[in-house]
């Protein structure tokens, strides 16, 4: 098993930490993992993306030009990464702020309105965990117990009281993702 993922959106959406939690979930499941951020002058509102690879075998390149799954959280990232998904691959996107919806017909497309859902839950900061839940529903590559273990490892202990809320967001994400079109 090998899953090559790009997660892309705005700085401040929790793109990098979502990738880190996913990567740590892989570590908990005894998989090989890599987490490679496209780092730059960091700022809120700038673009942020991270390449995460989970694999049963040794990982060669942490940098990729095509992906099994793209998780897209803003329009700029849609424009940049829609064409880089492998045929038959998966695109998951949040509809918030998307003005041009995906056009590929050779990939599986899912929509998750996580921004709206996070607002409804009065927990806007758990936005990225809702998205993660949606992703895990579509691609259950790591067991939920390992995701929670990964979450614990990624969060500093002073934030551990937030784990139940994040768990709830992940569960909500598994419920509110919808397939838009099929390859």
């Amino acid at each position: 098993m090998k899953e090559e993922i790009i997660i892309a959106g705005f700085g401040g959406q929790g793109v990098l930490s979502m990738g880190k939690i996913l990567a740590y979930s892989g570590v908990m499941q005894d998989m090989e993992v890599s987490w490679m951020p496209a780092y730059g002058p960091e700022m809120r509102g700038g673009t942020a993306n991270v390449t995460v690879i989970l694999s049963d075998d040794r990982i060669s390149s942490p940098i990729l030009h095509e992906y099994d799954t793209a998780i897209i959280l803003n329009q700029q990232s849609m424009d940049k990464f829609e064409s880089d998904i492998k045929p038959g691959g998966t695109l998951i996107y949040d509809g918030n702020g998307i003005t041009r919806h995906p056009e590929r017909t050779d990939i599986n497309i899912y929509r998750i309105d996580a921004t709206a859902e996070a607002a409804r839950m009065h927990a806007v900061k758990t936005f990225n965990m809702i998205v993660l839940g949606g992703y895990l529903k579509v691609k259950p590559i790591v067991k939920m117990e390992n995701v929670i273990a990964g979450l614990k490892k990624s969060l500093p202990e002073r934030h551990h009281h937030l784990i139940p809320m994040n768990e709830k967001a992940i569960t909500r994400g598994t419920e509110c993702i919808n397939q838009v079109s099929e390859a």
């Binding site: 880190k20 990567a23 570590v27 090989e32 993992v33 890599s34 987490w35 490679m36 951020p37 780092y39 990982i59 942490p62 940098i63």
Partner: peptide, 10 residues
């Protein structure tokens, strides 16, 4: 380099 410095692995 910046790739190896910034990337996370086990």
């Amino acid at each position: 380099d910046g790739v190896i410095g910034q990337m996370m692995e086990k």
